[in-house]
């Protein structure tokens, strides 16, 4: 029983972090209809930089997200303006190839500069835990999840309470309609891509503490995140949250009662099953298409 509760609690803590990482991916997809395959590579990039700064200065890795987030916002903006905006309007296949190319490039840069081996940031609390009612809560997991919840809350406020957020949501729902009421679609897309990328600033910092990583780890991460947003419904933020919690739980339960090596397969299995039975995901909707054309 304790083991089950332990697994559930850990699953939710991990799910919170997943939700944060997936939120950026689903936001970008919702607004631009682009699957940003480079999202995982950006996470690993942040994790590397965080790890480097931590190992040189000793500043807390999760705290470093305060620095990394604006940096990644800037990088996202530059990536959009310099690269992605050049192919806006061409086929979805090309945009996937482009972000795939970016992902490989980032992996290559990390390979050359940081070397191809596992790293992990290990601050003082790394192996400590809180104990509550016989359940152990690893401090790193708790801090990571708290940071994720704070950022998700901020993201929610930005998207629902500010004009910018409404512009982003309007563009996500109907970009030509949004353009008609005076929203500059290109500007909104750049902003959404920058915000989506900024979430990797926090996500990657947390990752550097919670998981060992090396340059090619980004494939694992993008698969996890894609599994989450496919389950939740691509483009839906609420869906990403629910999908992340479900898959976080599924992963810990598999690791607890099955074995660790099978837990990664859960994500692929979920992707296949969801596409088989409910292609639009839990929160996705299908609307009429002919008006768009």
């Amino acid at each position: 029983m304790t083991q089950l509760v332990q697994a559930l609690v850990l699953g939710l803590l991990i799910g919170g972090v997943y939700a944060l990482m997936a939120s950026g991916l689903t936001l970008i997809f919702g607004v631009m209809n682009i699957i940003n395959v480079a999202h995982g590579a950006l996470l690993i990039l942040v994790a590397f930089v965080t790890w480097k700064i931590w190992s040189v200065t000793g500043i807390d890795p999760i705290l470093l997200s305060v620095v990394m987030t604006p940096l990644m916002f800037g990088l996202g903006w530059l990536l959009y303006k310099g690269v992605l905006s050049r192919i806006s309007g061409s086929s979805p296949g090309m945009s996937v190839l482009l972000t795939f190319g970016i992902a490989i490039t980032i992996e290559g840069v990390l390979n050359v500069t940081a070397g191809n081996r596992f790293r992990s940031a290990t601050p003082s609390y790394f192996s400590e835990s809180y104990r509550v009612l016989g359940i152990s809560l690893p401090k790193a997991q708790v801090f990571g999840c708290l940071a994720a919840v704070v950022v998700l809350g901020l993201l929610y406020v930005v998207l629902s309470k500010t004009w910018t957020g409404r512009a982003i949501r309007a563009t996500a729902q109907n970009s030509s309609g949004a353009a008609l009421v005076g929203i500059q679609a290109a500007g909104v897309a750049a902003l959404a891509f920058a915000i989506g990328t900024a979430t990797t600033g926090v996500g990657g910092s947390i990752l550097s503490v919670l998981y060992p990583f090396f340059p090619a780890s980004h494939y694992d991460w993008i698969s996890r995140l894609l599994g989450i947003i496919v389950l939740g419904g691509m483009g839906s933020l609420a869906g990403a949250l629910v999908g992340a919690l479900v898959l976080g739980l599924a992963e810990t339960l598999t690791a607890t009662y099955g074995s660790l090596q099978w837990s990664t397969l859960i994500f692929y299995a979920v992707i296949m099953l969801v596409l088989l039975f409910r292609p639009q995901g839990l929160f996705g909707s299908r609307l009429r298409q002919d008006v768009m054309a």
Binding site: L97, L98, G101, G108
Partner: peptide
């Protein structure tokens, strides 16, 4: 790195 850049 070369392949990734070439793809982009």
């Amino acid at each position: 790195l070369v392949l990734g850049l070439a793809l982009v």
